[in-house]
């Protein structure tokens, strides 16, 4: 997206010593293995909110594909992807941020959706309505929601 605008904003913000501006989906810097070192918001993630996003059908719905033993009350956990138990041991925070933001940069061609991306998509729809969207689509998760999910994943230790 508009790289200059965003950097401009970030710059202004830091000059004004306010909270750091969010990194827009198009400006996230991935390393060659798909990890993202810098927080998308500069704010610490909230693991409790992260757990909700992971479980919630209309949010991350990560449990559609992954099992999480730490969430025994969430029914019908899928098994398309590996169980997330121990993800916080296997991966660093930067790697997890990269996987949640755009897993295709870590696992080439993976079925896992890219949660912090705004396209390009083939025939994107307006949510689950089957209709074309009216304007630009926001990413599936907001920057802070990604940080919350990453914070939750970091708590998954074995």
């Amino acid at each position: 997206m508009k790289r200059q605008t965003i950097w401009g904003l970030a710059l202004t913000a830091s000059f004004a010593s306010a909270a750091m501006a969010e990194i827009a989906p198009g400006d996230v810097v991935y390393d060659e293995y798909g990890a993202v070192a810098q927080s998308l918001t500069g704010q610490p993630g909230d693991p409790a909110r992260g757990a909700e996003i992971v479980s919630n059908k209309s949010k991350g719905n990560c449990v559609a594909c992954h099992q999480v033993s730490a969430l025994p009350d969430v029914p019908f956990q899928g098994n398309i992807g590996p169980a997330l138990d121990g993800a916080g041991d296997r991966w660093s925070e930067a790697q997890l941020r990269g996987i949640v933001a755009d897993a295709k940069k870590t696992f080439e061609g993976t079925i896992m959706p890219s949660f912090y991306k705004t396209g390009p998509y083939i025939r994107p729809g307006d949510g689950f309505t089957g209709k074309a969207p009216k304007g630009d689509l926001p990413p599936l998760l907001s920057a802070q929601e990604v940080e919350d999910v990453v914070a939750y994943l970091m708590t998954l230790k074995e």
Partner: peptide
Amino acid sequence: FKGCIRDTRAET
């Protein structure tokens, strides 16, 4: 078909 494509958050 329509339902399955809709479930990918696509325009069917």
